[in-house]
Computed example of a mutant assay.
Amino acid sequence: MSSKVSGWLWDLMGALVILLCSVPACCAANVVIGVNVVNVNHLSVVRQNDMLKAIKSAGVTVIRSGIPATDDGVDFARRAYAMGIRIDWIVSFLDAYQVGAPTRTYQKSTYSNMWSGHPLSALDPDLFKAKFSSVLAKLDAAGVKLEAMEIGNEINMAGFNPDFPVPSESRQFSLEDLEHDPGAQQIAKGYLQYLKILAQVKNVRDHTRVNRTTPILTAGFGAYEGPEGPLSKHTPGLVSLNATLDFLRAHGLDQWVDGYAVHVYPWSDHPGDPLAAAGRRRRLAQFVLARCHPPGSEIGKPCWITEWGFKLQDTMCPVNDSERVTLVREMMGDFKPYVEQGRLKGLIYFGWNTDPWAKSVDPFSLYQCGSLTASGRLALDPSLLQ
């Protein structure tokens, strides 16, 4: 072979390598697209099946939902899976608390968004393991392959974490606060106990048959898109998403989870305005996805956004969906680089249905007036991320 031909072949091979390496990551690794369903245990089996059929007709193959620790709950998961729909299972703490655990009571008239319950710091890891093992064994026996297991929900926020006092301090706590502020130190105690729960989840999962490789996700951490420090008066307190992940990672989080679940409800001001759009991109990068990294990274895990969404301005029929269409299309474009980089592995919209307990239609719902909205079709379209 002449040196001229040999050099040509090497140039060609080099060009092919460059071309292959420049293919967007989204084309090689899929992102999970799905939708939340709310309180399915309060729907009849007929209504559950009707909802699942509508979701399947929309081309959706993943839903985020709780699975009640009952035979009916397992049956719902089985029916969904039989229709080709996998569940990102929101795993509750299954009332697995130490004997005599303190209780935060629900005060509807004064603190309506501060739910009752026991603090994370009072969790009993061994009791949780026994209860969790039982439910997961039933799902495994039914042949139900889950999409993910999301352990807890918004535990960095006062409403879902009774380690926050009532009333909670109107503050977004920082990593330094978790180490030095007396109120935040109590929250940190709960975080450390939560890590013991994650260790039990991994131990149980690793010994299953059907779900041995199912990703374990953190609780969906709520993102407040603003700086740490004091908040406006009467705003419930929280620990920033970044501080929460920094604290948990410093205490071993990454050995027990495969990804970080995060929640964001972006500002919806001025749809279509370039300055407003730039603000949403900046806040997404700074306050929501800053700690998300590709698989195999030594400094973090990929993220799954397991709740995101925009409200309709009104829910009258026929639906006026034009502003939400603009916002959803914009956000899908904002998510795309994170998908390409492998930093974002899941995108699950909130939500599909209205809570059966609600007295009015949920303005976040994608399914309005008996059909999927135009914004819903965009939010569930993976081609917008390629």
Rank of each mutant, 00 (worst) to 15 (best):
R281V: 09
G66I: 08
V201Q: 06
S322H: 09
S297M: 09
V91L: 06
M332F: 04
V23R: 13
L175F: 12
L248V: 03
Q48P: 09
S6Q: 15
A29P: 04
E154F: 04
Q386G: 06
M51G: 05
R324T: 02
L217T: 03
P24D: 13
P227Y: 02
C26P: 15
D181Y: 01
H42C: 11
S133M: 05
P125Y: 07
H118V: 07
D273C: 10
A223P: 04
G252D: 01
D334L: 06
T235M: 09
V32W: 06
S44P: 10
M13I: 15
D75C: 04
A278I: 04
Q193T: 14
A29Q: 11
G190L: 08
R343I: 00
F76T: 05
D124Q: 07
S112H: 15
S133H: 13
S371C: 07
T244Q: 09
I67Q: 07
G309I: 00
S383D: 03
F287G: 00
A141M: 05
N153W: 08
K108Y: 11
R280K: 03
L385C: 04
Q98G: 09
R104H: 07
W267S: 14
L284T: 09
S57A: 12
N242P: 00
G152E: 13
D246F: 11
T214E: 09
T61N: 06
L238Q: 07
E228F: 01
Q386E: 03
M13E: 14
D163Y: 11
D181M: 01
G73V: 05
K138R: 13
L175H: 08
E298F: 09
D273H: 10
A285V: 10
C369F: 06
L253A: 02
H270T: 06
K345E: 13
P102V: 05
M13Y: 10
P125M: 06
V38C: 12
N41I: 13
P68F: 10
A130R: 15
H118G: 12
L94E: 13
F93E: 11
N211H: 01
P227E: 02
Y111Q: 15
P119Y: 11
R377S: 03
N41L: 11
S174E: 00
E307H: 08
L195E: 05
S6W: 05
